[in-house]
Design a protein around this nucleic acid. Sequence first.
DNA 1: CTCAGCAATGTTAACGTTAACATCGCACTC
DNA 2: GAGTGCGATGTTAACGTTAACATTGCTGAG
Lengths: 329, 329
Amino acid sequence: MVDVAKHAGVSHQSVSRVLNAPETVHPDTRERIERSMATLGYRRNSQARALKTQSTGLIGVVSPGDTDFGPTRMTWAIENAARQRGYATALSVVRDQRAATVDSTLDFFLSHGIEGIVVITPVPALAEAAKQLSTRVPLVLVTSGLWPAGNMNVAGIDQELGARRATQHLIDCGHRSIAHIAGPMDWFDARGRVVGWRQALAVADLSAPRMIRASGWTAEAGYEAAQQLFSLPALPDAIFASNDFIALGLIRALAEHGLSVPGDISVVGFDDVDAAGYFSPPLTTVRQPFEEAGRAALELLLDVSDGLTHVPNFISPELVERGSTALRG
Amino acid sequence: MVDVAKHAGVSHQSVSRVLNAPETVHPDTRERIERSMATLGYRRNSQARALKTQSTGLIGVVSPGDTDFGPTRMTWAIENAARQRGYATALSVVRDQRAATVDSTLDFFLSHGIEGIVVITPVPALAEAAKQLSTRVPLVLVTSGLWPAGNMNVAGIDQELGARRATQHLIDCGHRSIAHIAGPMDWFDARGRVVGWRQALAVADLSAPRMIRASGWTAEAGYEAAQQLFSLPALPDAIFASNDFIALGLIRALAEHGLSVPGDISVVGFDDVDAAGYFSPPLTTVRQPFEEAGRAALELLLDVSDGLTHVPNFISPELVERGSTALRG
DNA sequence: CTCAGCAATGTTAACGTTAACATCGCACTC
DNA sequence: GAGTGCGATGTTAACGTTAACATTGCTGAG
């Protein structure tokens, strides 16, 4: 910077002004300085800037796992939103969920002068870990509405609503016995979907068949969980699977038992993964608006940074009707 | 830091020493200082540290798009590798591929004192943009072997080898007419897979049927591309699809024409996405070792930082046999 | 007993930037 | 034509850390 100043024949402060408040410097001078900057290939040192201004333009995202659909998409969505608001994103994946790990991650972020942190917390362990942190920096949790958030700031996607919509769609198709294959019950998302399923059934005055639990979010887990169906006294009319991959495994298991979807049983998934429209049959599912939710989380974070309070913001997912559900014949 | 020093009754430099070279300070003093740090909740300011030492512990990853399977997985893999080596990862998604965008992204990284950059460059536009950068910082490209890298440092997954393995498997099944549905041809990955397919056919002394081009990596694109098959004078025995989703759309289109997989036609995909084992039929495909490739890219980056030269490192993908291929009846 | 040598600690300056304040010169008012 | 105000620019200090050098006091060799 001082080199630029020398080259342009001004003081370093004028150079600084060109960068931070161009309107306060004379157009001629400004142009001269800008030319000097270009000639010398000057690049502002943001460490020094951060040291002085205490602001780094960095947002931290803490994400669990690297393959789960939801957290992954959410991470990208937050990056997108942050970039649009002029922030850079530092990413940290915590692969185990002990409080110490999360704590050291946040510590790392803090010591790097991060201005705000979004923690994607699909499971209680992570949420608890995040909750216990001394909040020396604005922090937003991305999770479902089920979490007793206390005074934490929370944004996310309304899982219960999505599940209600999925279940209601099955009810509208005329199905009366609507089972649910739940995802891993330590996930808030899985719990929220169970609750939504029960709510919709209760409103329609239908009883809930036994719930089946899948051991993971994968097609494999769905396939295994489906085996429990066949030991039931009677098969349901329809099944709401906690995500698309579980639904995929389920459909495969049903096919192996000679049951067609939607001819014999209707199936609804959740997520609307890229391939869902090309499953056999194309899967009716619930689309999660990640982009919107990521934006909401970031806006919330910025509001929190500004000292504003904010009500939790849960975005509504939409049903996507395809071929795996049909009116009851 | 000066507060800690005051609290412990020493100079700030002794505090600094405890942090950077604990062995040079007397155990008693050290313990006293450490206690003071704990009491005061001291956190070292890494901006100031970076300002002085010129090292931030930050690695930048530039990734295109946010939904494509390969780049996404690769990004996470690099984050994983970086974290294991004690680096934090800053993420930047470039959503258009103009040189200016890439340039400003790298500029942003540079001004944040990033120590090395991994650019995931699946398409030439991005690679060119990265290539033209004044390399003021160690930079590694992640791409396929096809790119005339010049003096750039490149790591990635060997697409040609993967495609050869896929094609060879079909040949081993006894198929003679093996078609290929290519992915978007501006992707290096797509081109590499075409080359590998041709190589394997040439080695086996088989002629290559007409290549079909899909307009994207999605099941939808695969479905559309498959329509071209049916206008061909004769259907092939087997089809190598450029990725799993294209294969999925293809299988759907075949089913709609009354053709069964693998009964009538064998199909091989590429990627081994999570659900591939539960497609109907379960998809034979090629698994890309992203974790390993991410690690390789990071090691390469660190080597480059240390001034070492390094040969390009392309990791070998493996065939995963499932139910979408069968011996020719 | 003296002083070299060394371990432990302290002092000073610098990294590159921005905030606060100081200065300069010019246009405009009365 | 002197004084006021303001736009443009310069000067100084500080952000929190580390490197280089300086100091202190003690041990042990001669």
